[in-house]
Nucleic acid binder design. Structure first.
Lengths: 216, 216
DNA sequence: CCTACCGATCGGTAGG
DNA sequence: CCTACCGATCGGTAGG
């Protein structure tokens, strides 16, 4: 059965969005031209504008689509954790593994998310950052559960910063990990988990810093 | 005593380079216009071009200047380590502290280095990445020394990736740490060191992965 | 002849 | 679905 016109349209459009993500990730949003994108897609510029409204629409679609999948991934892993009654450490390890896997699959989209979110307008940026915050909170909640010795003030001060250190490792991964290198993301995910879970029990802040943050 | 004309020139020029770093870090190199830079400096565009040859010169100066200070910083800390006969763990902790301190002082420059190095020409990029590699190797050397149990193949496989995880945490720090927040980089540097040094002893890769990387 | 600097505009190219 | 264009703005420089 032949595909309908709208199915053909959706396929061609998706190719364009994938190509745009690749170029945005490589050159950055402002340095990517729509002519260059048309050329990379093997189509004319007017035809490109048959599939997309404007350059900005590509940016919102790539960033919002990716961060929405990350929010869904957090929920998926939480469901698995409930089913299997995972300890917080195992839950966090699974979050790390699944996120590194997703980042590898959506390498370009993730590059655009970390690099070009600043070019979103205020409303779109707020929506994307809101979803990022949901993801961060899921990780932070898991980290707090893994540190049963923390007082509420310790958790309030340290959970988010430690989460961001973890995201620093994961987000930075794909800036240096070569896809054709001997070590892939599949080998690195457990290393990230081992390093973070191994270091987590020993992290603490001086009591006066905790107190200052609590009253700030 | 009045400053000489060339001293006035150097001061005004430095102000321009600092402002360019701030705008590049905020908006990215391609999205920053020379008209906007001139306006931010409170001077006309022709006067801006009296101080700098072109836009690209600003990018090379900011990135190369910053990474050169990082290379010097590595040597400084190595000298301190030799003087005080620091253990590798203490040496690494000091590297982390001093680097986080330098990143905080040169926040804009570091943002430009991590974000806009791709807009350098081939020769300039090679020079900057070469200096980055020097810095990475100093950290990696320290990490290997801190893991006395490693065989040469373990060190060859794990040292660079672990170094990059550490740089991921440090480089990502200033994307989320608010300068006016209750927690500053001064409090976060020991947290980064505790987390990394606490997790380092427990990190390992399966023997077959080490073997595959050794023969790759 | 040098420096410091302005108002105006250059050749090209961006998104659309 | 292409050629031919636009309003604007880019990086960089002219004359005075």
């Amino acid at each position: 059965m032949a595909r309908s016109r709208s199915a053909e349209f959706a396929i061609q459009r998706d190719t364009i969005v994938r190509t745009a993500a690749r170029l945005f990730a490589r050159d950055g949003y402002p340095a990517t031209s729509m002519s260059g994108l048309a050329e990379a897609c093997g189509i004319s510029k007017p035809l490109l504008y048959h599939y997309v409204n404007d350059k900005y629409q590509l940016l919102t679609e790539i960033t919002d689509g990716h961060v929405s999948r990350l929010v869904a991934l957090v929920d998926e892993v939480a469901a698995d954790a409930a089913t299997h009654r995972w300890a917080p450490q195992q839950h966090l390890r699974q979050l790390i593994t699944r996120f590194v896997e997703e980042y590898a699959l959506a390498r370009d989209d993730h590059g655009v998310l970390t690099q070009d979110v600043k070019f979103l307008g205020e409303a779109d940026r707020a929506r994307v950052l809101g979803k990022e915050r949901q993801v961060v909170e899921a990780f932070a909640h898991c980290i707090v559960a893994a540190r049963a010795d923390w007082q509420p003030a310790d958790a309030a001060t340290l959970a988010k910063p430690l989460t961001m250190l973890l995201f620093g490792m994961m987000n930075w991964l794909f800036t240096w990990l070569r896809p054709d290198g001997p070590l892939g993301h599949h080998e690195m995910a457990p290393v990230v988990a081992d390093l973070f879970l191994g270091g987590l029990p020993g992290v603490e802040l001086p009591a006066d810093v905790i107190e200052r943050c609590r009253t700030a």
